[in-house]
């Protein structure tokens, strides 16, 4: 979902180096169509994409109007029943709310942190490369391992977190049994795990701001805070909006972290959309209903992506 536009942005923004020439004019040898040869080159990719992407997109749409448990031969047409069942299921709304809470909890903190770190690293700081690597490390390790480590840090009896809390005289929290604390732990780890991505995206945006703006501001006697609010923030607005949408799309799809850190608990308080989808599909094998959930998620993300593509267009053309 998020990929296309992010790639388009970064590449068009020149991350790869050269802005590629238009492919239209001189495609290969002049004149003749090279369809047979092209098909040969494209065939492995086309086969895999057809079988594992195109067909599934269509088939899960079809399934969302059917009832099917995967093992029976018959797929009974039920019209909009699955969708009706979905919107009348209180658990669905609870799950939707948890996803929203997770999103609202992670995205702003994530972005604020990422921006501050990117701005500081953009300055004349010693050891920038090492620092950047440090902030980026959580992004590259597996979510499963990260969640296992943090589960230990959050262990109610032996964990570092509670030890630190009690050391400074704060009350000890039962992360495993308290629904609010469980969601908080999810948000903390979610921010920690992904803010490095946004840091890098912000850094790319920052490097595009012309230095002479800052120089002019300095001549006029502006301090660093003034420069930040008057130059960095407004000029970074398109990047910020882009990262915002990208982050929302990402946090709507959280799964691995929930599975290992809380398994949706306690009492389903951290169950999110994809977890709900996973349960219906691969625990209850209610494939039709699960497909309806998938399409609903798809719909939400699709709207966000369209919005993002528009943002991106404006962004690129603005940036010239």
């Amino acid at each position: 979902m998020s990929k296309t536009t992010a790639i388009a942005q970064t590449i068009d923004a020149g991350a790869i180096g050269v802005r590629p020439p238009k492919p239209g004019r001189r495609a290969g040898l002049p004149g003749r169509s090279q369809l047979p040869e092209a098909l040969l080159f494209l065939s492995p990719t086309l086969v895999v994409v057809a079988v594992f992407i195109v067909f599934p997109i269509a088939f899960s749409f079809y399934l969302s109007f059917h009832e099917w448990n995967m093992f029976s031969a018959e797929q009974a047409f039920v019209g909009l029943d699955n969708y009706a069942r979905l919107v009348t299921d209180p658990e669905f709304w609870a799950v939707f709310r948890h996803t929203l809470v997770y999103t609202v909890g992670t995205v702003p903190v994530n972005m604020a942190l990422a921006l501050v770190v990117a701005v500081v690293l953009n300055k004349n700081i010693k050891g920038r490369k090492i620092l950047r690597a440090a902030f980026f490390t959580p992004v590259i390790v597996s979510t499963v391992a990260a969640a296992v480590i943090w589960r230990w840090i959050f262990d109610p009896n032996l964990g570092l977190f509670n030890y630190a809390m009690s050391a400074v005289g704060l009350p000890v929290i039962n992360w495993a049994n308290d629904p609010t604390a469980a969601m908080a732990s999810l948000i903390i780890v979610g921010v920690w795990k992904t803010f490095g991505i946004n840091m890098v995206l912000f850094a790319a945006g920052l490097s595009a701001i012309p230095v002479h703006y800052y120089e002019a501001a300095e001549i006029d006697g502006a301090g660093s805070l003034q420069k930040f609010w008057r130059i960095t923030v407004p000029l970074l607005a398109p990047t910020t909006l882009f990262i915002l949408v990208l982050s929302i799309i990402g946090s709507f799809q959280v799964f691995d972290l929930v599975y290992v850190l809380t398994y949706g608990g306690p009492l389903g308080s951290t169950k999110v959309l994809v977890f709900y989808l996973y349960e219906y599909a691969f625990k209850f094998f209610d494939m039709g209903f699960a497909s309806a959930v998938a399409y609903l998620l798809f719909g939400v993300l699709f709207v966000l992506t369209l919005f993002q593509i528009r943002l991106f267009r404006e962004h690129v053309y603005d940036a010239g």
Partner: peptide, 17 residues
């Protein structure tokens, strides 16, 4: 455009295949 489709949409039919 296929990149815009989250894995969660294609997961069920891919599993069936």
């Amino acid at each position: 455009g296929t990149m815009m489709v989250p894995i969660h949409v294609t997961m069920i039919p891919s599993f069936m295949i």
